[in-house]
Write a protein that binds this DNA or RNA. Sequence first.
DNA 1: TATCCGATGACATTGAGTGTCATCACTAGG
DNA 2: CCTAGTGATGACACTCAATGTCATCGGATA
Lengths: 191, 191
Amino acid sequence: MGRWMPDAAGRLSRAALELYEERGFEDTMVAEIAERAGLTKRTFFRHFPDKREVLFPLSARIHEVIVDAMAAAPADRSPLAVVMEGYDAAVDMVNKGHAQARRRRAVIMANPELLERQLTKFAATSAAVTEALCERGVARRVAFLTAAAGAAAWRDARECWIEGPETQDLHALLRESVAELRSAVAAPLAR
Amino acid sequence: MGRWMPDAAGRLSRAALELYEERGFEDTMVAEIAERAGLTKRTFFRHFPDKREVLFPLSARIHEVIVDAMAAAPADRSPLAVVMEGYDAAVDMVNKGHAQARRRRAVIMANPELLERQLTKFAATSAAVTEALCERGVARRVAFLTAAAGAAAWRDARECWIEGPETQDLHALLRESVAELRSAVAAPLAR
DNA sequence: TATCCGATGACATTGAGTGTCATCACTAGG
DNA sequence: CCTAGTGATGACACTCAATGTCATCGGATA
């Protein structure tokens, strides 16, 4: 057996989610999270840069998955198609954890600081997508707007998925959201 | 003459921008900002909820302007047209301060915490726009996606405006961004 | 004149986040 | 078997953002 219990970051992550549910984010101190995980406050900050980040342990890997899938897309696809290819790949990472996703969502929605951090996560993904498009030769401005459209569809679909039953297909929801977005953006600007 | 120097919030805002430029956000302490404004740290926090918020003094009024303009739009306009009506109204508030906008942008871009707060501001505007659309009878999901599209165009246009010469017309840039977004979203999803 | 109000200062306190050094099981080289 | 090194952790002190509380005092009001 190792010198320390395994998966310190995972223990911290789980303890944090539990405590944020029990007492709320504001009324939970980092020292308490660490204690429940059998560690100290100082060690918490060796695994996570701050008290908010502990709720988003997957975001780094999601970026990789999306960017990789985009890189694998055939060269003749439209920018939007490439972006959706990326998000479709991300679906498979997220798909398993419906219950988990609901718990995290409830905690996040209850606190402005956590909502703010979640926005940063969406924006970071969007920035990675923008960059990936640029590397394919898409003009920066088009890349930014396409990434923003994809992010909007992703957020919309994810919201429906979390609110609805676990059996829903996130791929299908994503296609629906894109279709809705298309018709919304195609609407006339003047009479 | 009054008992205190007038416009405490404005003095704090200006002092903060100066200090963030001189030393950077991280290395500026709230007590220093307050001192330069002739006030105390405690009074800073009576005018702004935190050290980041002091860089976004106009955002609350911008929301009002946008929502009011949307409410004034004729009932037969498409959701996207209504949203653009709102942002067009916001242009006139922002248009004057090109130099100021550049200074703030430079400070914000140099610090992750400020970028995060800026995202929250864009998101708050977007949420207000979504709500205004819902009150017009637009379905929530369509409202969200349309608001997201408008926000993307707004950010894109604003970026171009700040980077370019002061003489540029932000209204025109906004129309350009919408046109770009339209063609990007209209692209085919499959071969 | 007496009273209240509203912005501010003064002071104390909490808790997030960081720097620094010690600890100690495990590992590799001799 | 011994020894030096490594890496995750604990212990401790410290800074600073943010908040609660009470005192102050010029001006407005009755």
